[in-house]
């Protein structure tokens, strides 16, 4: 009886689903709109050199000493992040 999805059960579920959808939408994680048409997702084929002499072109060996240890210091649950309001807070992972 649990496994057998009858016509009646199906119809009831569809009707209930339609009713739910007419009210508040189902739970969504989007609390903000993508205001700029997802700029950061654009194609990224640019006609330019990056032009800086930054670390980007260096050997990864330069990082082995310091950068790789970064994560080992602690997970992001205790990582400090700068929030959009400029405040420094501990990064957290709880549902919003």
């Amino acid at each position: 009886m649990i496994n057998r999805t009858t016509t009646a059960a199906l119809a009831a579920a569809v009707a209930a689903a339609a009713l739910m959808s007419s009210g508040a939408n189902a739970q969504t994680a989007n609390t903000d709109k993508e205001k700029c048409y997802g700029i950061s997702m654009a194609g990224k084929n640019d006609c330019a050199a990056t032009g800086n002499n930054s670390c980007a072109g260096q050997s990864k060996a330069d990082y082995d000493a310091k950068a790789w240890k970064y994560v080992a210091k602690g997970s992001c649950a205790t990582m400090e992040v700068t929030l959009k309001d400029g405040m420094k807070r501990k990064g957290t992972l709880m549902p919003m």
């Binding site: 959009k84 992972l93 709880m94 549902p95 919003m96």
Partner: peptide, 10 residues
């Protein structure tokens, strides 16, 4: 949850 928190930070 991880993605949302690290994207919106509301």
């Amino acid at each position: 949850s991880i993605w949302s928190t690290n994207t919106y930070d509301l």
